[in-house]
């Protein structure tokens, strides 16, 4: 077969098996008063089905921006996201998001919060009884079936986050996006939630992208850890394969050599290679505050 260069790339594009989720050379520039602020530069990541990916990096490095682009809440300035070879250009329930502060509707009970999602996603495919069963199944999965009819202000922070996860899982997403899901919880509750998440993951085998600040959490939960460089113009620094056997137990892993090696690699990346130069004046333009503004102005 004799192919010219352009024909060759075309051929390759058509025939190489594409990744399940393809984050393809994304640039993100936020408009500011003094011109553009380039939060992300050439972020490129391919994720397989059923993979659990952690995004780790210092605060303000654009992790949330990546997640929001995959969610469709932001549009990348350059590049794009392909999910099963379809371009992502708006938010949708097939890319469910677990937000950092649960974002449950405070006027609805746990059950009703999940119901809102289920009704929207499965309106045409499920009967009322099936919906009820599916809502209850998901709440059971996160061990919230005992407090189904409580409202968010009547349950603890960890329980709220469980309901948030149940709501996301109930959408039966192709990709589950989690933005520091346990960041606001105390250490004990967080450990408990991580165990729950591993248990759910072993059952459902979802494709997950999780943002975290917590090195132990990243190593414990992930198949791959994506470490991001500091912004501006943040990008993927290193990717670490975590080949620890599942099911993983935090107790036995504590003494595991491989676990500790991985852990120290992440720490080395974060605190040696990408040491955050603290500069108080530059904090005013952390990307985190800029995306918020953008969203609210829409």
């Amino acid at each position: 077969m004799n192919l010219s260069a352009s024909e060759n790339t075309e051929f390759l594009e058509k025939n190489t098996p594409q990744a399940f989720l393809n984050i393809s050379q994304i640039d993100m520039v936020f408009p500011t008063d003094t011109g553009g602020f380039t939060a992300l530069k050439n972020v490129d990541l391919k994720i397989d089905k059923g993979e659990f990916i952690s995004l780790i990096g210092h605060s303000g490095c654009g992790k949330s921006t990546v997640l929001n682009i995959v969610a469709g809440l932001y549009q990348a300035t350059k590049g794009g996201v392909l999910l099963q070879n379809k371009e992502v250009n708006e938010p949708g329930p097939e890319r469910a998001v677990v937000f950092q502060n649960h974002s449950l509707l405070p006027w609805l009970t746990a059950y009703q919060n999940v119901e809102l999602a289920v009704k929207q996603v499965f309106n045409n495919t499920m009967s009322k009884a099936e919906m009820k069963e599916w809502i209850e199944y998901n709440l059971k999965l996160v061990h919230m079936d005992h407090a189904m009819f409580k409202r968010p202000d009547e349950i603890s922070g960890g329980m709220k986050q469980r309901v948030g996860i149940a709501r996301a899982l109930a959408m039966q997403p192709e990709v589950l996006l989690m933005d520091e899901p346990f960041g606001a919880l105390d250490a004990l509750t967080r450990a408990h939630m991580q165990d729950s998440l591993m248990e759910i993951q072993s059952e459902l085998n979802n494709t997950v992208i999780m943002i975290t600040h917590d090195v132990d959490e990243a190593v414990l939960l992930s198949d791959r850890i994506v470490m991001m460089t500091n912004g501006p113009e943040a990008t993927v620094g290193e990717i670490l394969d975590v080949k620890l056997e599942r099911p993983r137990s935090r107790l036995s892993l504590a003494k595991d050599i491989e676990y500790n090696r991985l852990r120290s690699e992440v720490l080395t990346f974060l605190y040696e290679k990408q040491r955050k130069v603290e500069n108080i004046s530059s904090k005013a333009v952390t990307p985190k505050s800029i995306p918020r503004k953008r969203v609210s102005s829409q």
Partner: peptide, 14 residues
């Protein structure tokens, strides 16, 4: 309204 709640609505495509 809290932008998180609006994002929930967007993700659900209400």
């Amino acid at each position: 309204i809290d932008s998180d709640l609006l994002n929930v609505s967007k993700v659900l495509r209400l």
